[in-house]
């Protein structure tokens, strides 16, 4: 679920409000708020679209957890999904370009350990 809006980073652009498929965010007096956390479907799209990496979606779909912005920064999770997708400006390649799925079946056939 969505757990964090970094007050320091958020520039109030409203992109996440528009992008979130389940309408979790509201803009209140120019400030972004997580208005309906229980409606979050843990899809990580808001993180991918936020231009300043101000959002963090925790991996837990059915419950809310405590997070600390300091710890997330330290662990490198803020903005990590956008970076991995190659959507951060200056990215050299994209997740789509690195995609190995078209080779998955063949790779599995060739490289999966045989039953002993």
């Amino acid at each position: 679920m969505i757990e964090l809006v970094s007050r320091e980073r958020c520039i109030g652009c409203s992109i996440c409000v528009k992008v979130c498929p389940t309408n979790v965010f509201d803009m209140e007096d120019g400030q972004l708020v997580i208005a309906r956390q229980e409606d979050c479907q843990t899809c990580f799209m808001c993180e991918a679209y936020c231009p300043v990496d101000a959002l963090y979606v925790a991996p837990y779909a059915d419950r809310s957890v405590e997070v600390s912005e300091q710890a997330l920064l330290h662990q490198g999770w803020l903005g990590s999904w956008r970076a991995e997708m190659g959507w951060t400006p200056g990215s050299e390649t994209t997740m789509a370009a690195r995609d190995t799925t078209p080779f998955f079946e063949q790779f599995t056939k060739t490289h999966r350990p045989k039953e002993s």
Partner: peptide
């Protein structure tokens, strides 16, 4: 754990990043 080499792990990671990222975050 059937992906028993770095190369295999990298291959799978690139096939479905969305599968791995949440587990890693946890």
């Amino acid at each position: 754990n059937l992906a028993d080499t770095e190369e295999k792990r990298r291959f799978l990671r690139h096939a479905h990043p969305i599968f791995f990222m949440p587990l890693e975050r946890a």
